[in-house]
Simulated scan of single mutants.
Amino acid sequence: MILAIDVFYEQTKAKIVGLVFNEWADAKYTQKIEKYRNDIAEYEPGAFYKRELPCIMDILADLDLSQLKYIVVDGYVYLDDEAKPGLGAHLYEALTTKVPVIGVAKTSFANNKKYVAEVYRGTSQKPLYITAIGEDLAQAAAMVKRMAGEYRFPTLLKELDNYTKSDAVY
């Protein structure tokens, strides 16, 4: 079981969506979890995880972590070449049952090359930026590359993004 999670914010409110699927190449999810929060922390530069982590933990509360093989987040595990922890690393540390976390980002950071793999999908000339904890980076990149869809952004992650942003937070 693989879980992909995304969060959409509107001031102090958030909509959190998780899609569960079985294999990296799956084009369809098996479960959708949707939650809302009203107590979102203010955005703090360099500490985005403080805002997003409680939302992700809400989704994880509905799942048996021992059944999860991977968690995919929209963002980074490490933020720079010094391994400054990003959302993915903070999530991994917060888990009582360790599940590998794979970060998938659409934009790069200037000083972030050491712990990042670029994945080109379809005919896109722009890569996705993959980071990982609890899994070999090259293996994580290969798994994201195998995801269903012919475009840069995998089908399930695009669908997740659409669900998260659809219907305003309230």
Score class of each variant (00 low, 15 high):
G75T: 04
L65A: 08
D74H: 11
A110T: 13
L53Y: 02
A105N: 04
K84Q: 14
K84I: 08
L87E: 02
V116I: 15
D62H: 12
S66L: 10
K126E: 12
P54E: 03
L128V: 01
L53H: 05
C55K: 00
L79A: 08
T97L: 07
K126M: 13
V72T: 09
G86R: 06
V77H: 00
V119I: 05
E93V: 09
Y92A: 02
T107N: 15
N111S: 15
E82D: 15
Y120W: 09
P100S: 03
L128Q: 07
L91N: 01
F48T: 15
K113T: 12
S108W: 11
K106H: 08
F109M: 13
I59M: 04
K69E: 14
L63I: 10
Y76N: 10
N112C: 12
G88W: 00
N112P: 06
Y129C: 02
K113W: 09
P100V: 03
T123D: 14
F109T: 03
L63R: 04
T107H: 15
A83Y: 13
C55Y: 02
V77S: 00
K84A: 12
A94I: 04
A61D: 12
L63D: 06
A89M: 14
I59N: 00
Y129I: 00
Y129F: 15
Y115T: 02
K126S: 13
D80E: 08
